[in-house]
Design a protein around this nucleic acid. Sequence first.
RNA 1: GGUUCCAUAGCUCAACUGGAUAGAGCAACUGCCUUCUAAGCAGUAGGUUCCAGGUUCGAGUCCUGGUGGAAUCACCA
Length: 595
Amino acid sequence: MDFIEKELKEGISAAFKVVFEHDLDVESFSLQPTRKDFEGSHTFVMFPYLRVTRKSPEESGKAIGEYLQANTQLVSGYNVVKGFLNLTIADAAWLNALQQISSNDTYGDLPSNGQKVMVEFSSPNTNKPLHLGHLRNNFLGDSVSKILKAAGNDVMKVNLVNDRGIHICKSMLAYQKFGEGETPDSSGMKGDHLIGKYYVKFDQEYKKEIEGLIHQGTDAEEAKKKAPSMLEAQQMLRKWEEGDEETVALWKLMNGWVFDGFDVSYKTMGIEFDKIYHESDTYLLGKDIIEEGLDKQVFYKKDDNSVWADLTSEKMDEKLVLRGDGTSVYITQDIGTCELKHSDFPFDKSVYVVGNEQDYHFKVLFSIMNKLGREYADGLYHLSYGMVDLPSGKMKSREGTVVDADDLMQEMFDTAEKQTRELGKIEGLSEEEANKLYRTLGLGALKYFLLKVDPKKRMLFNPQESIEFQGNTGPFIQYTHARISAIMRRAESLEIQSGFEPVGIELKERELELIHKLTEYPKTVALAAEDYSPALVAQAVYDLAKSYNGFYQDVPIFNEDDKNLVRFRINISQAVAKVIRHGMGLLGIDVPERM
RNA sequence: GGUUCCAUAGCUCAACUGGAUAGAGCAACUGCCUUCUAAGCAGUAGGUUCCAGGUUCGAGUCCUGGUGGAAUCACCA
């Protein structure tokens, strides 16, 4: 909380004590920003306290306002409309706040809270390339990690790669049959795209076989199970699990290609992990915990030897945790992996960035960890984000209705280049600088587009209407930063010293608005961390940039006789740029010095 | 069918967690580049917040019941 708000709340609390002889806990209420149509910046709502004041809302507000104005340096005026007490803060306090912000190089970073947080995201399958949905996942996970870190947590970013299983075998099988020794080098394709091609190929063949069987009179469900391709894929999975040399060699070869491809994509996205888990190493985990659960009577056995968890008391169903033949299912692995993660990094919180289609799975998982008596179970959190829809509906890899991640990023870079050229803004840039700028802008537009929406909500992406560079967009905010950079360059060339004297300055509306927004920024970071919501940061940074552009339009910076005022306005600009850079950084977006 | 989530301007999204006259961007229309970057700024128009009740001084937000949509309810992952 910034000191203006802190002092204000303490003042209000003191006012209640003196005027109404009532103890009002500072933590028990909050102030809200005053609506634009009224005088003032902070508003206190009187309605909830009328029982205490035993006066009309207007009289109560007036009494508090009067006290604050008379007894604090902070409040220079007030007005009461209905039950809303609007408070005006003295210019000196705002100027003081700006100086504090300016002198703080890590403004926006909150003090350490000693909490360890693990964030798991991305978690791709190695049988197909990344698509738009993965982009939302990756950007979200990366941004949330950065926000949590800024909010004072010790953060560990992990990626659990799903590199084994029947879906991988499908690609392998199709490659064996139709691949003819093709490699990423020979085909000129990125490894993940090459493998994806064979995954689609498998599905086509498989569908043909099903149709053939149905034509011969087999019913649909039966045909899906009996199709030769599927039987072969299952056979291959068994061979893989037995460690068959030839199968494992092919698996390693093809996975290697995919990883090379993914590395390129992650690099383009600007995303890194602290640790990578492979499901091929972890898929057998969890069985010993199932044993433990049986001993503790958290689980029970059925006649066929299969093991179950009964969650009916928590309005969920029974859940299979181990098959009758002793092999594991999805949740078995997750139970084991959860334990492994905690022993690797004893977290207070563990965040799973996974789509909301798995809501039920995680509810079950967390409930089981809880029943098993894991003290860390309360810290498990499913960051459940909504799907990205296309106008045609949901994306499906197998049906080819996906927006490919690499293609989309390239399109964004191309669009950025086109727009930059059209606006004639490449003058004076080297080829290398220009290319870097296109990437910064293109990726900024894309990340901002996906992160500005509340993660929990599903969102729509229309490929026909390309992502904008004007309005509420990444490039708009980047542009604001570039503008300020230009001002800083000019200030430097004019040898204007930084810093200003906080006296004799009468704040303009636009200046006050900017400082007010700057002071609220740390609160936004804290709230974004609490809600796991980069959207809050995006909104705040956009608001700030929007305000700055208004200021830029209305208020001259250099064309001003009072040199102290010039320095003050440069100081504001610098502080705004600092917060924009910090906020965009939390979204994983770079800001350019010129554009 | 059960469970969970969602429904706000023509479109994409906000609304500080129950506060004042519901805000931005895009699209449409008007203005503003011989002064610091027009990827900008200012303005016009656009709303029965899906419907019907309820709680409250106050409801887009909470409760109940509808309508419409999505996800999930696998010995797939």
